[in-house]
Design a protein around this nucleic acid. Structure first.
Lengths: 148, 148
DNA sequence: GTTTTATTGTTGACGAGGAAACAATAAAGA
DNA sequence: TCTTTATTGTTTCCTCGTCAACAATAAAAC
């Protein structure tokens, strides 16, 4: 098979495998929340003045889905919304202190996954890291280029 | 941020981006089929004597989901089922000639994506390819190890 | 300023897929 | 052999996310 195609195929498979493997552990540690909610919390923490549109783009979901998810998270008192005075259309979100706690637990989980998988990274040189980073960067840059 | 964590995060993001980008093109070229059906067809072509259980594992979906999908594909005359004489429990699937055509179109689409993205691969050395392959292989091997 | 056009978030109908319970068959153990 | 346990595929119920239409607001065009 084509080397490039095999690379992409194995890459996709690896990502699926990791998600599939980690998902139950995350949902066990944060029992009252679904993975999609937890990831949305993560994005709200990362994106300044996150609104539905930005979150949809970051989550690879539709605005409709994010709109419903944010409603649910507000009802659970995990996030809160606010608006600016000069724009009555956009609605922004931020974490409540409760939401921050959940995000912290989630971050710790990610650390524990790295610990669990440290064997994979242990023997990698800086050069190898950079090779993969360059590949990812080049691909994302390329996709951005051909999109606009 | 931790280098390893950033690597995994960017990797996941790249995969999502590619899926998000390619999906509409695939569903446009194969108008009557959803992406999940097309990927199932691909797996049935790849896996010898594919049954619900093997397909579920390969697709990262539940057996229930695959059971429904195969029913749909049989109704559309894209796949057919068969059984062995020495096992009355397992049900295997294979592509019809119609299904093979769809799979061929899908394979051509993948080729066209590689063509579109050739700029990304053009400057990669064999050593760089191998570095990424090794990383993927090591990770998948590790996950397999800690699973059983 | 006024009128278009684009963008925002929301909603309801719908389909896709997961969870869990199930019957049928195979494999393992006695 | 006979019994128990595991695995197969299926089905029902339910949740999640998409799609498409929508009203509200902002931006652009004039």
């Amino acid at each position: 098979m084509d080397k490039r195609q095999q690379l992409m195929s194995e890459l996709m498979d690896l990502c699926n495998e990791i998600i599939w493997r980690n998902k139950p552990e995350v949902e066990l540690a944060l029992k009252d929340y679904k993975l999609s909610e937890i990831e949305l919390i993560e994005n709200i923490a990362l994106i300044p003045d996150a609104n539905v549109t930005k979150l949809a783009a970051a989550s690879y979901m539709t605005r409709g889905a994010i709109s419903k998810l944010t409603k649910k998270l507000i009802a659970k008192n995990i996030i809160e919304s606010y608006q600016s005075v000069e724009n009555k259309k956009e609605i922004y979100f931020r974490l409540t202190t409760h939401g921050q706690k959940i995000n912290d637990i989630h971050k710790e989980l990610h650390q524990s996954f790295l610990k669990r998988d440290e064997e994979v990274f242990k023997h990698m040189t800086d050069e190898e890291f950079d090779t993969i980073f360059r590949f990812i960067g080049r691909y994302r840059h390329h996709l951005k280029n051909i999109t606009e």
